[in-house]
Design a protein around this nucleic acid. Structure first.
Lengths: 192, 192
DNA sequence: CCCACATGATACACAAAAGTATCACAAAAA
DNA sequence: TTTTTGTGATACTTTTGTGTATCATGTGGG
């Protein structure tokens, strides 16, 4: 077994692994009670393959959480590094997070009734990003001073998730969603 | 078995039944995957008692859904009957719905991966109420005309749920919550 | 004080899901 | 073509959850 053999095999394995991770996350975001049968079917692999890549349901969930966190981290880090003002950072955050609604929601829902361990840290990462943004929004007076910090983060969180769901159900256009979230968050829904 | 005996026993039974229904709903709202063991524990009764009142998990869920719908219906009907304008109806809706977050969320989450039957109707009731209100809000120009109807309803839905969660976690005062929802919904979070 | 009865605990039968082992097949490498 | 290896299918065991039956206990009413 030489080097090239290893890498080529790894490519094939990596493909199925990625496929499983993505489709499994979607399936579990839709239905948190999905059995491994359901998940295998959704991921378009045999149930045996599931166990080849993840030794237990617990570990599968754990890796899904890690993957979700990575996706969110990779999406937001470049934005943070741009060092824009809070308002523009908010806009870019929303733009990248709405399409990641599955990861976003998955991470949020799994921590509550956490099936595994070590999840709390990752979830706090995610919450932390929104909390930090909230603090900046308030400091730079993008958000009114009298709004509780917790409320800012939770509204942002929920609007993003709501947008993702509404897009999925076909009720709003994918390209309209981020704008709606931003506008609703800043100005609400009443006419101005 | 005379009349008074019957009624007194009924009182005792009604107490445990109510207790079970309330605590079970909370438990399932927190964790949709809760087993009957978990539910019995949360409801502070033996598992056997659960089966005395509900012949199966399916029926338990079904009755919880009915109960949740009743709570929401009873809370909102008097408001509708007042025939206020849309803006004031909205305000009163929010006031009564935030504390009912458990019922609210339960009804929302159970329909997706519905464990039973007949749920769809009740959920549509619930959604219908918010949709109707959304239509009125737009007709009476409380909400801008260019906002998609689906978005209005989903934002309202999520803000109410978000408020309930945030109150539960102790991050905002129960009495502040409805005001925050109303304000955020209409005006957003930016200073004015 | 005694009786009726709701409850909790326990033990059990059964179903569904999780997890393991094996084999034949297909695709890609040799 | 032959070999290697990832995969799906299947059959199996173990574990967990659902649902049933029984009994002892405690409480509340007569």
């Amino acid at each position: 077994m030489n080097k090239s053999t290893v890498s080529k095999e790894n490519i094939r394995q990596k493909r199925t692994r990625d496929k499983v991770i993505n489709l499994a996350m979607h399936a579990l975001a839709k239905n948190p009670k999905a059995s491994l049968n359901d998940i295998a079917e959704a991921a378009e692999v045999g149930r045996a393959t599931l166990f080849r890549y993840f030794k237990s349901r617990k570990q599968l969930i754990h890796e899904l959480v890690i993957e979700a966190d990575n996706k969110l981290e990779n999406a937001t880090r470049p934005i943070v590094e741009k060092k824009l003002n809070a308002r523009d950072t908010l806009e870019e955050f929303i733009k990248v997070l709405v399409p990641l609604g599955a990861s976003f929601h998955f991470l949020n829902s799994e921590q509550l009734h956490s099936e595994g361990s070590g999840i709390d840290d990752l979830y706090s990462n995610q919450l932390m990003r929104l909390k930090e943004l909230s603090i900046r929004l308030q400091a730079e007076k993008v958000v009114a001073a009298n709004i509780p910090l917790a409320w800012i983060a939770v509204v942002l969180d929920n609007l993003i998730y709501a947008a993702w769901v509404t897009v999925l159900e076909g009720d709003i256009a994918p390209n309209d969603a981020p704008g709606l979230v931003l506008y609703s968050f800043l100005n609400g829904l009443s006419p101005h």
